[in-house]
Write a protein that binds this DNA or RNA. Structure first.
Length: 423
RNA sequence: GCGGGCGUAGCCAAGUGGUUAAGGCAGUGGUUUGUGGUACCACCAUUCGUGGGUUCAAGUCCCAUCGUCCGCCCCA
């Protein structure tokens, strides 16, 4: 048997309701903030990600699905959404429309990693980018929308962690300071961190190795090494979060894995996800648009991991499967035809209607009507077919009445109310 | 890429070298050929992820492989 590739999976009907709930919530909340959806390709030239995300990052260094297409172009399945959106922003000259662009996207992303709970090779993100604004209010708008979405979905026990990594000069200076602090301890660091000492020293800070953590504890903190301008930005972001009553935790060690972040970096985490605790991650990326060949443009954004959100939602909500309002059972040639017609008419009037296609004994069909979860049931046999009537039965009470088919259609609004009250 | 656990039906499982692979849920048929939710009965794995090997004998032991889960790493 041919099975799905490692790290990919099918989203089956019993799960898909959670996805639809998330998608509808995201769409609603973001459209209220006047964000526009953008759809970009899921593969791009490899160079886009190498330049955008950074050659030294793990994502680019070892996790990309890269292949060459017919001809010689190197192509990569997108490992994240921002680079592609920024490419589209530049290529389509969205910046020329002036002002701010508020965009959102969703879709599959690909990273070649060892799968575990909450981590796949093909996974899905919904993300948002606010381009063309450097105000701290933009950072906070974006964070507030993320927390709105998660709160509206009913999630609790989430923690917002935030940090500032400063502008590029701040980072360069801090990098030097960090290296000179860490160098004397080089031999005591875990092997991965030793490796990163020159390549990507900021990442050493959130190592989980106990000894490295101990050393990192007393390392200079980036938030204490910011320029006055960067510090002002960060302080204002924190102030505005407080004004909006959004709780946060400053995490001095929070350094995100993609190179393009500047100033604000944040993650929203949950304790209920095991090792892959981050549901939403994002931050400001003031240099990326220019780096990719566009005009100097400041921007902020985030991405939410759909699979992780679904995992959290499944712990809360149950039974999001599609259940019919009404189940139609019929037997006999004429009755079966009428049942089909009635099903279509009722559906067009807004009811969820499941039609039993079996032609089996009424007893069997009733049994299935029960199992379907429907509130009401329509019965059509030879007698009804002849008189153009139908028996309407309420499955919980057993109460049943004969009415003409045209009367049934006339009273649909009344039926909807009764069905809603019995659900 | 590294370390560890697991893999028996659609789902949950018993089984720890001796030959008819328990049980439950779900499903299908019947008791009940126009009235269900209960009850009872029957059916539902030539086979234990896959491929090799050891043995008189393998779901059970060994090797490989695939998948999955938990960590590391990384991130959504």
């Amino acid at each position: 048997m041919i099975q799905a590739l490692r790290g990919t999976r099918d989203i089956l009907p019993e799960e898909v309701g959670y996805w639809q709930l998330i998608e509808a919530t995201v769409r609603e909340i973001l459209s209220r903030a006047v964000y526009q959806e953008i759809r970009v390709p899921i593969f791009e030239q490899t160079a886009l990600f190498e330049r955008g995300i950074g050659e030294a990052t793990d994502v680019v260094g070892k996790e990309m699905y890269t292949f060459s297409s017919r001809g010689d172009k190197s192509i990569t399945l997108r490992p994240e959404g921002t680079a592609g959106v920024v490419r589209a922003y530049i290529q389509n000259k969205l910046h020329a429309q002036g002002g701010v662009q508020r965009l959102w996207y969703s879709g599959p992303m690909f990273r070649y990693e060892r799968p575990q709970a909450g981590r796949q090779r093909q996974f899905h993100q919904v993300g948002l980018e606010l381009l063309g604004c450097d105000a701290p209010r933009a950072d906070v708008e974006v964070i507030a929308l993320a927390t709105d979405i998660l709160r509206t979905l009913g999630l609790k026990n989430l923690e917002l962690e935030i940090n500032s990594v400063g502008n590029s000069q701040d980072r360069a200076q801090y990098r030097e300071a960090l290296i000179s602090y860490l160098e004397p301890y080089q031999g005591d660091l875990d092997p991965d961190s030793q490796d990163r000492l020159t390549r990507n020293p900021l990442r050493i800070l959130d190592s989980k190795d106990p000894k490295t953590q101990e050393i990192a504890q007393n390392a200079p903190k980036i938030s204490e090494n910011l320029s006055t301008e960067s510090k002002k930005h960060f302080d204002l972001v924190l102030q505005l979060l407080t004004d909006l009553k959004i709780k946060y935790q400053i995490n001095h060690c929070l350094v995100r894995g993609l190179d393009y972040y500047t100033h604000t970096a944040f993650e929203i985490k949950s304790d209920d996800l095991g090792a892959q605790a981050t549901v939403c991650g994002g931050g400001r990326y003031d240099g990326l648009v220019k780096e990719l060949g566009g005009p100097e443009t400041q921007a902020v954004g985030w991405a939410i991991g759909m699979e992780r959100l679904v995992l959290l939602l499944q712990q809360l909500e149950s039974n999001l499967v599609n259940i019919p309002d009404m189940y139609i059972i019929s037997r006999g040639e004429a009755a079966e035809a009428q049942g089909l017609i009635l099903a279509q008419k009722l559906r067009n009037l807004g009811l969820r209607v499941e039609l039993d296609l079996s032609s089996s004994a009424f007893g069997k069909q009733f049994k299935r009507a029960d199992r379907s979860g429907a509130v009401a049931c329509l019965i059509l046999g030879d007698a009804e077919a002849q008189s153009n009537t139908v028996n309407l039965k309420w499955l919980a009470s057993g109460e049943q009445q004969a009415i003409t088919q045209s009367n049934l259609l006339d009273m649909v609004e009344e039926l909807k109310l009764k069905i809603a009250s019995l659900k």
